[in-house]
Amino acid sequence: MAYLELNNIHKTYGQGDNATEVLSNINLSIEEGEFVAIVGFTGSGKTTLVNLINGLLEPTKGEVLYKGVPVQGTSHERGVIFQNYSLLPWLTVGQNVFMAVKEAFPKKSKKELNEIVSAYVEMVSLTPAINKRPKELSGGMRQRVAVARALAMKPEMIIMDEPLGALDALTRGNLQDEILNIWGKDKRTALLITNDVDEGIYMADRIIPLRPGPNATLGPEFKIDIERPRDKTEMNDNANFKETRNAIIEYLMDIGDERKSQAKEEFVLPELSPKDFVNQFK
């Protein structure tokens, strides 16, 4: 039995004639301790997929099994790092993390909770900013708070929805290493959603492309057999890396071309010309 299993998932938004099937026939299984990356174009239904796994959405058809049990609603066992940080702007860094920790460990004393908060804020090296509000922080710092908030709840599985999408390349690299570090320490199961193939290859054990929606579905998986800890500069010369990278990019490009050629046929503009307003009133 896999740790997380998605069986024939379909997700449709809207009803009747307006219904759009965003995801169709998604099958995925993740083993315990594995780091899986899903790569896809923007707008291909990645966030919908994440929300199905973390329990914010329910599939229209099919089932999501977490440790063999169908997912019903959210759970503290599955920590989520959102795409847009989603920090509460009226709380300080410490308070944002504290709120999560308090919910995850309702039985602990305030002192113990505070210790957990400072430990995780320290881990993302934001101790000097613990009393600042999100608006006083840079994008990278905000995302680190979101990481600390998700991890401080000690989830068994970390779900990351394009966590580094809005960051610059340098901050991105640093945070990738930080996340890998944390993941490496206690080998939690991790699912990363990203639009960056290199990021996927650098971080994950397996990469699965998502064919773009509507009717998005998962493509063939690519195994990354590069030993950890991985080194970015060395990786660039690794034959295996180049091969995998090219294969994935080629696959995604093919999908893109397919989509373009379809688009050409689909949109036929109707014969319309602007109304003649000048002569209308004569």
């Binding site: 329990g55 914010l56 609603g73 759970s75 959102f82 989603s86 509460l88 999560a100 919910e103």
Partner: peptide, 12 residues
């Protein structure tokens, strides 16, 4: 909606 999602994920 983001804040509501946070509330849901934290199970407030």
């Amino acid at each position: 909606k983001d804040y509501i999602n946070v509330a849901k994920v934290l199970k407030l």
